[in-house]
Design a protein around this nucleic acid. Structure first.
Lengths: 205, 205
DNA sequence: GTCTATAGAGCGATAGAC
DNA sequence: GTCTATCGCTCTATAGAC
């Protein structure tokens, strides 16, 4: 039987503390002492449950990247009309990032250092390749209802437009003179703008 | 008289080594030992010229971010037609990032930790606000030759679309099954796509 | 200016008592 | 399972010879 107590156990508390600290400070900036303190236990406990900083990090990194990518992939695979799908990506992704604003920089920064073979573990490639989204774009393109586009290029444009304002928040909010509430409004407004931008581009020429 | 020797002096060698190491590994991951080794001198020399890791980092970070932002700002301020301007941003920025692929993650990751008052030093705000680009969008919008848009939103869409593929290279190239040459082609192709996307969005509705 | 040697603080990991 | 105490290592920074 799995432990199902609503009261958290130590392992879970450490994992959550570690996630917070790693996301805010990166692998090199995060110290086991911070994680222990944040979790309310000790360094000895961190090592007892996770056998070292590196292994604790791997667990959290894989999980976080899985969510980061999985969000898009599952939406792209839904069998709904293109227009609805584009909106759903913009809407869902923005909401997710507003709840987890550190995820993009964390994932992309750590990936830079260690561009290894973690992707296979999450079988990311096949999921994008076999996605309904790709077929959808091809079929609509042949019918002439949309411009002919390369799926990966479109995805990069869409994700870049959605993710960038979270990574560049310090600069953008400073330039725009926005406090946190104003920045939230800016991000919500972007849902519509990104949707309109993608749809405008897809319109046949 | 400034030293003008083409043969590099020690200070310059250390600075270039530090830039390389900081850009690749971030502040916390970069060690003075790596910088000393990379520069062919010693840690004592690094401290002799730059009085500590923190100050060396500040110099390099400010300089790098200045270039990162300055590139766009100067193009946006040019008094050329909108269409040419959008193309120029896509073209110039992509070329710059291909020569300096680590810059975006470096700048955005470090900014996350230390969202302080560095922007005033580079008087970034006024430069965007008073830019010819803003007026241009407003005038064309009133004339009805383009859609009414918010300048900052448009800039974020444009920069996000251009910068994201550099930050996400490990994932994107893996998904697309691209080697470095293929990825360069992908990025060059994006110049046109980003240009077309922005122009399609600007078209009056 | 440049080096070697080392001080002094902080790091991850573990031993051992409870 | 959980803690305290501590080991051995690496880090930044500097003293001091040349």
């Amino acid at each position: 039987m799995k432990p199902k107590k609503t009261e958290q156990n130590t392992e879970q508390m450490i994992k959550e503390a570690a996630k917070k600290v790693f996301l805010e400070r990166g692998f090199d900036g995060a110290k086991l002492r911070h994680i222990a303190e944040e979790s309310g236990t000790t360094m000895a406990m961190v090592n007892y449950y996770f056998r070292g900083k590196e292994q604790l990090f791997q667990r959290i990194f894989l999980e976080t990247m899985g969510v980061f990518l999985g969000k898009v992939i599952s939406i792209l695979n839904e069998e709904v009309p293109l227009e609805i799908k584009v909106w759903k990506v913009a809407d869902t992704y923005t909401d997710f990032l507003q709840a987890n604003p550190h995820v993009p920089v964390f994932v992309l920064a750590e990936l830079q250092k260690d561009s290894s073979e973690i992707f296979e573990k999450l079988n990311v490639k096949s999921l994008i390749e076999s996605t309904y989204f790709t077929k959808q774009l091809q079929i609509e393109g042949e019918k002439g209802t949309i411009r002919n586009v390369k799926p990966l290029q479109l995805i990069v444009t869409m994700l870049g437009s959605l993710v960038f304002p979270f990574m560049a928040k310090p600069i953008v909010s400073y330039i725009g003179g926005m406090d946190d509430a104003a920045y939230k409004a800016f991000l919500d407004e972007r849902k519509v703008i990104v949707f309109e931008t993608i749809m405008a581009y897809l319109k046949p020429v």
